[in-house]
Simulated assay, not measured.
Amino acid sequence: MYVAVKGGERAIDAAHDWLGRAHRGAPDQPALDTAQIRDQMALAVARVMAEGSLYDPDLAALAIKQARGDLIEAIFLIRAYRTTLPRLGASDPVQTGAMRVKRRISGTFKDIPGGQVLGPTFDYTHRLLDFRLMADGELPETSPAAADCQPLPAPHVLDFLNRDGLIEDAADDGNAPGDLTREPMELPAARALRLQALARGDEGFLLGLAYSTQRGYARNHAFVGELRIGHVDVEMQVPELGFSIQLGEIELTECETVNQFKGSRTEPAQFTRGYGLTLGQTERKALSMALVDRALRWQELGEDDQGAPAQDAEFVLSHCDNIQATGFLEHIKLPHYVDFQAELELVRRLRADIPHAGAPDAGKEDAA
């Protein structure tokens, strides 16, 4: 056993060395700088921050570089680092209504106060490879109109529906939300905990669930009431001072959906909400989160359970975390020699009790 362990250690050390060489790539090429990753791969950085539950673009860029571009591995690195940080306090709720938006669109109203701001998005681009990026690595010069655009504060679009009583009230229930980073999930989970889990959940998993709701698995026909991306101030109460101080600002993506609702025995006919809020520019994730959030609310709205995957809170919340999923999935790559040998011996004993089970061609000879 000792020899096997030592041999395994040497193999692991060699694998680490090989990983280091593979990580660097061709030595005649310049090394990739974390500042380049942070600025030029901003959407990957945003996903790592959102699912890693830590807003720090520099550390997210470092994690992506260390993980060779494997975003789930980078998220794992960020979460592991996050556990080493002290908890000094809790910030005040951020005021997204005062967000300095750089992108703000609505699929429900054409004319909104402050106007629609398309912002930096692939939505209106042709999905064609731009070989100029391969040739010289530079995009065409930015137009003056785009360069001079400054983030502006804008009110929430759904407030107009709320004032007329046409959409459910978004008032807080007054209960302090739990913290999934410090306490394990318990089911049934309140909406605040569900939203936390979805915000940390895997983008691809949530995208698939959200798509399923649009195809009829939960009958979740949604309109984008508003999708906004921008910066908000983060403030914290200081008891010694008696007021809040600003700690800094972070970039957020917020999505509110408007959903059809015919009413129930307890609720009048009105529109209902789905909500998504994530770190960085992660609009596909925020939109998926909003659709899944709405699907999970079927019980509190008095709707029927259709048995759709997106309606099953235990299924969604227990499987949306990509770090938990990765750990359970990849553990089967580790040695399971003893377990397999036991099952192999069992199969051999079972086959020994069946005539001709051990001879693949015995049946052909008997037939002849």
Rank of each mutant, 00 (worst) to 15 (best):
A44F: 04
A362N: 07
A63T: 08
D353P: 00
G114W: 02
Y124W: 09
R265N: 05
L291G: 00
T83W: 01
V5A: 14
L334C: 09
P140R: 13
A147K: 15
I75P: 01
D111Q: 11
H331V: 14
Q260W: 14
E73I: 07
D293H: 07
D70V: 00
Q311Y: 04
G358D: 15
K6L: 12
G137N: 04
I75L: 01
Q150K: 14
A189M: 12
P355N: 04
R87S: 11
G248M: 08
A310Y: 05
M99V: 05
R103F: 02
P144W: 02
L252D: 07
R103G: 07
L287Q: 14
R349G: 01
E226I: 09
L344I: 04
C255S: 08
Q196W: 03
D33L: 12
A290S: 15
G280V: 06
E183L: 00
L71V: 13
L252E: 08
E330L: 15
L129P: 09
E345W: 07
Y55N: 05
M99F: 09
Q95T: 09
A44M: 03
L277I: 03
A35G: 14
Q237L: 10
R215S: 13
L43R: 15
C149K: 07
P177A: 08
V316W: 02
D136A: 12
V3A: 13
V258E: 13
F122Y: 12
M236N: 02
R182Q: 14
L317W: 01
D366K: 06
E251P: 08
Q214V: 02
K364C: 00
V232L: 13
A190C: 10
